[in-house]
């Protein structure tokens, strides 16, 4: 399946829940609704021609107006890759845990919870992960984050 075939296949199936974004990058990227997350994840994993059985990465992006959560998945048998993402409000962002679909996402979800302050519903093990044990300064990957010894790059 080529890149274009994959794009049209994913858009044509799954009840139109994945909308393709034309970003020019090689791996196609789709936008979904946060409420559809578990349904979409299960559908991508169980689809006979995609078989997205491997979760490569889960990342978050702070765009200063909203937070974006990006899931990168791959198929080890069909040699396919795709990303899907959605936006969350800046205040009290919440996502559903998809540990039941790809159990390997556990640590990634802890990471975005800790670094971006995105609460993960039904995760069950959200606790201190990467930051120092005595950390009490909030979520450092947020763009508005600040600390006494944090030095921002001066504008050039």
């Amino acid at each position: 399946m080529t890149r274009e075939e994959l794009k049209s296949y994913v858009e044509g199936h799954f009840d139109g829940k994945l909308k393709s974004l034309d970003t020019g990058r090689y791996d196609p990227i789709f936008e979904i609704q946060p409420s559809d997350l578990i349904t979409v994840a299960k559908a991508l994993r169980d689809d006979e021609s995609l078989k997205m059985d491997f979760l490569c990465n889960l990342g978050a992006v702070d765009t200063c107006e909203k937070l974006e959560v990006v899931y990168s998945v791959a198929s080890t048998t069909k040699n396919l890759r795709l990303d899907f993402k959605f936006s969350l409000p800046y205040d009290n962002p919440e996502v559903d845990s998809i540990k039941e679909v790809w159990p390997g996402i556990d640590w990634y979800e802890r990471e975005i919870w800790e670094l971006y302050g995105i609460n993960v519903r039904n995760h069950g093990n959200l606790k201190q992960f990467l930051l120092p044990d005595d950390w009490d300064q909030g979520n450092p990957m947020r763009k508005d984050w600040d600390a006494p010894d944090f030095i921002r790059m001066p504008e050039v």
Binding site: A147, I151, R152, M153, P154
Partner: peptide
């Protein structure tokens, strides 16, 4: 890592 880093000891 002097600028924009929360993790590195200066």
């Amino acid at each position: 890592f002097y600028y924009d880093s929360y993790a590195v000891e200066k």
